[in-house]
Design a protein around this nucleic acid. Sequence first.
DNA 1: CGTTAGCACTCTCGACATGAGAGTGCTAAC
DNA 2: GTTAGCACTCTCATGTCGAGAGTGCTAACG
Lengths: 340, 340
Amino acid sequence: MAAVTDRRAGILRIIVREYVETAAPVGSRTIHDKYGVPASPATIRHEMQALEEEGLLEQPHTSAGRVPSDRGYRMYVESLMGQADLPGDEKATIRHQFFQAAPELDEWADLAAGLLARSLGLLALVSPPRSRELQVKHLELIGLNEILALLVVVLREARVLKQLVPLDSPFEQAELSVLAARLNERVSGRTVTELRRDPSADDVTEQRMIETLTGILNEESAREAAVRVEGVAGMLGQPEFQRDHRGMLDIVSLVDQRATDRVVPPESLGGAGVSVMIGDENPADELHQCSVVVAPYGDQADMSGYVALVGPTRMRYGRGVATVRYLSGLLEEMMDRVYG
Amino acid sequence: MAAVTDRRAGILRIIVREYVETAAPVGSRTIHDKYGVPASPATIRHEMQALEEEGLLEQPHTSAGRVPSDRGYRMYVESLMGQADLPGDEKATIRHQFFQAAPELDEWADLAAGLLARSLGLLALVSPPRSRELQVKHLELIGLNEILALLVVVLREARVLKQLVPLDSPFEQAELSVLAARLNERVSGRTVTELRRDPSADDVTEQRMIETLTGILNEESAREAAVRVEGVAGMLGQPEFQRDHRGMLDIVSLVDQRATDRVVPPESLGGAGVSVMIGDENPADELHQCSVVVAPYGDQADMSGYVALVGPTRMRYGRGVATVRYLSGLLEEMMDRVYG
DNA sequence: CGTTAGCACTCTCGACATGAGAGTGCTAAC
DNA sequence: GTTAGCACTCTCATGTCGAGAGTGCTAACG
């Protein structure tokens, strides 16, 4: 078999770029005329045949131009597109917006998802970081009326949980505060697992509160982080979905059902840095026409989330990878800076 | 002009129901055979002509059946569909789910949106209630590290706001608690407007905190409530959008940009009870092929939200109105019960 | 042996024609 | 007022055709 020579690689790169831009199969004439390759269309056809034999290109039908195959995109991402980086001014603009926003993990996730979606015109998913092991920082009891109190729990990473607690006998706020103080002695700085091992308290009400507390914490760690999704409209605007109503519906259903872990399976977040899943490489069947660019951020062991970009396989990988990389890095930096 | 006789009204009702079910123009034969109307197809055609002259029916083209016009749907909703109500067991199932859920306004909104979307297979919007005038119930300061504290504010309706506050000098948690206690004396039970009129405090740090507090409150009352949206996929699955890619895109863009106030404009929530906006009656151009069924809940003056259903004009109005009415009533009841 | 011009071939796509089917409007009779 | 009969109109699926695009092959060239 003919190897992938430099010229062939160059042609592959051109085909990927041209196809990404126009969404139409690329012919030998276009490559010759528009990109000034120093070879006649006939020669280029020869080379394209070779690339097709290598499984890097495909032909929708006999007399159409060529389209990159999944393997073609893979090769492009791996060795042809180069180390893309965002232009400095764009980085600065993004950075600026993060420093303007409220210093909240969830706000940042919103912001990142919005920016990513708008920057590429595609679907963006950003998971706010969740810590595996919840640790109580502080707890408060506020009486709302005679029979109802609000239990407010502050976690180490400045997240706040709350839960209404019915009271079986009327409490004054002062009593509640005393109770809260006693509880804080007991629980502050402790993790869920530690609390679960504790002996029960003497006071009945105190014990009830502790149970409510561990209940909230358990529920919270069981619940998946609410992944921010942006850019559905942009995604549907892609030419591949103009015709393929069915495929489009499947993808929208996926995000509609919050099945984000089928889009970005936890396993795919193993390594650090940006990873790309192209077409059939995606575990979810619905995404076999799509690519996913994803990067984890935060510290792997404890607080971690991810930034992901979903688009048709015909996507701007260079810009996508660059943006995802920059945003994940920035989120990590923001986290360190404020919560470190 | 010929009046709308009982028989004509009956035929209109049949056409609406049949069209809603099949999404295909309804012909005189179908009305005769399937619904056993005691009149020949020719007579029915006569009546249909009259209904068309009244502007209640439309013909997609000369030799198709009839389709209800916006005015036709309006008449159906107003006087032909009857007072639809949900079957008792369905009500019970819904009710049960609400009592199982955590007693949180936001949770309820999520639940209601999910139920509504799934029940009709359409788009559901539920706005969690927001009070116009925020009132502080309690406030807490928790030191995260030497230079950063978390200000936690509990509002009357058991909502919790938080904000990170940088400290210019290191504080012990004990000092923060004292400060918080002093602040609570000052602010608890007060509304934003009241606080805004207060003279400034002597202590610098105290004053800084009060400013931060009013800042949070202002920002919060300016921010629109995060409306829960469910059922985008179901909506896109509707036959009207199989072809009309453009119209579909416009609608998805609307919710994608969180422009929910264009879908459910505040004015439309004026009256109590369920209201229906059909086709061109919708203020947003994108929704001229759609109908919106909406009901406010909560007490109009203070805490109020809404439940809305969006679908093609060809939607199941009876069921839609019944479900929206039941859910809005239930949400109001839940609110009263827990926060009353 | 790589490169190239020439050319026949294949396939898509839009335009156009055709026929079946559906449903109507009209008319005349009841 | 109601109905049967019938010609008419319009859609839709199907088929045909030609233009256009792009290929693969072959033979000639340096």
